[in-house]
Design a binder for these strands. Structure first.
Lengths: 185, 185
DNA sequence: GCAGGACGGTACTGACCGGTTCCGTTTGCG
DNA sequence: CGCAAACGGAACCGGTCAGTACCGTCCTGC
């Protein structure tokens, strides 16, 4: 009974969950197949190899994650500081295990690997989005401030992963508030 | 010809380099043996298994890293902000590949694993050290400020790994300067 | 109703993993 | 000198890895 839903979509969904929860290298193709219910041959019909699946997963996650961020920022008032409120929501989730893209850069040591590059692009896109928020807020140098905001976001993510509590988001937000107030003065 | 230097020391040195450069999971026991020149049997005479070697490597690195930090902070004037000058030195090194302990927490997904716990303890020890620097500087709430400093340090490390430039250290230092000035006011 | 494409299941390959065992040699110490 | 501990090297184990090949089946469109 071949299922109506495309095997490709199930592969991406299962792989994303497993990669995030346990790490890319820790998850074998076998696991992805059994969780997704996709046959081995079908997998290699859709993807040349595991590496390509990894890239596809990251690209999809990048798009979805940024859409989620924009939606949550809007729900929290739309200001630049709302990114930290959105992060706090993420940190509180039971399955939170850091940033999938940071994790990917750590795991794929080679900075020239495709996975590493996709992860770097994601962070650049997030920085772009934050810069837009700051520019809309009328700060003097939105570019420089955005870089500091992203540094605070990454610091909060790593800290939350270590402390296993959403508190780090508030800590980063307070620092960002001070930066924002100083930039507006 | 059994070498005079203990096999254990060579194993720790080789494993530390390889783990940091390529990741713990990516490095097999075979590689560690060939690089260190230690025989397979000798390895298992010194360590029950690879996991125990990992823990021993992390413990040794923790001690050495914090000693290095204290030394560099002293060389940079001994103030709390000097931690970011020390980080800048690290980031500029060609073999820089982030924080070994953050990387370990990312790689060993299970937060109850021994490696994960050692990594968390390292960060706590660093926070303690920073707190001491801040207390010596006479700030009002050294504990809260130390937590923010460590968040900035971790953010800078991740950012430096991504951007492949030491610039993030200066960025974090500027933010820390503002926090310190506000705390002293 | 029939053909073709997408599919799941299984068996297999060669490479590598962590770990065990045995053996011959070297070294330091009494 | 002689012995015991520490050592390096190599063969080997079961398990898992990514990737390939083949087969029978289901669903769709004609």
């Amino acid at each position: 009974m071949a299922m109506p839903v495309q095997a490709r979509e199930r592969l991406l969904a299962a792989a994303e969950d497993l990669f995030y929860a346990e790490g890319i290298r820790a998850v074998g193709v076998e696991r992805i197949l059994s969780v997704s219910g996709v046959g081995r041959a079908s997998f290699y019909r859709h993807f040349p190899g595991k590496d390509d699946l990894v890239v596809a997963v990251l690209r999809a996650r990048d798009v979805r994650w940024r859409a989620w961020l924009a939606e949550r920022v809007e729900a929290h008032g739309g200001g630049p500081l709302a990114v930290f409120d959105a992060l706090a929501e993420r940190f509180a989730r039971e399955d939170f295990r850091g940033c999938a893209f940071i994790n990917t850069m750590v795991e794929s040591a080679d900075p020239d690997s495709a996975a590493h590059r996709v992860a770097a692009e994601h962070k650049a896109a997030v920085a772009d989005y934050v810069r837009g928020l700051l520019a809309g807020d009328g700060v003097a140098d939105p570019d420089a401030l955005a870089r500091r905001f992203v540094l605070l976001m990454d610091g909060a993510i790593v800290t939350a992963l270590r402390e296993r509590t959403p508190e780090a988001a508030g800590r980063a937000r307070e620092v960002a508030e001070a930066l924002l107030a100083a930039a507006r003065r």
